[in-house]
Simulated scan of single mutants.
Amino acid sequence: MAQPHDAPTAAELVAAVREFLERDVLGSLEGRTRFHGLVAVNVLGMVERELDLGAAQDQAHAARLAELGFADDAELAAAIREGWLDGRYEELKSALLDATRDKLAVANPSYRS
Rank of each mutant, 00 (worst) to 15 (best):
E22C: 00
L44T: 05
D52R: 10
S113R: 15
A77R: 13
V14F: 11
A16D: 14
L51S: 05
Y111V: 05
D98V: 00
A7E: 12
G37T: 07
V41F: 09
Y89T: 13
E19R: 14
V25Q: 06
N108F: 03
L104W: 14
Y89M: 13
D24C: 13
D98W: 06
E50P: 02
S110H: 15
R112E: 04
N108Y: 05
G27W: 12
E91N: 03
G54A: 10
E50N: 13
G54I: 00
A74H: 12
L53H: 05
Q3S: 03
T33P: 13
A2P: 08
R49A: 07
M46R: 15
G83E: 06
V41N: 14
T9A: 15
G31W: 04
E22W: 00
Y89P: 05
A105Y: 07
G31Q: 03
V43E: 13
L51G: 14
E67W: 00
Q57Y: 08
H36V: 02
G27Q: 14
A60P: 00
D58R: 08
A7Q: 07
A10C: 06
E91H: 12
Y111Q: 10
A105G: 13
A15Q: 09
A7D: 11
A107F: 11
A66R: 00
Q59K: 08
L92W: 01
P8E: 15
W84Y: 12
S28K: 02
A99E: 09
L104Q: 07
D102M: 09
S113M: 11
S28Y: 03
V14Q: 03
A107P: 01
R81F: 07
K103M: 06
A16G: 08
E75C: 06
V14K: 02
D24G: 12
E30M: 10
L13W: 10
L21V: 06
L65Q: 00
N42K: 08
S94L: 09
D73G: 07
D6G: 15
L104P: 03
R18C: 12
A74Y: 05
S28G: 13
A56I: 00
D24H: 12
A55V: 04
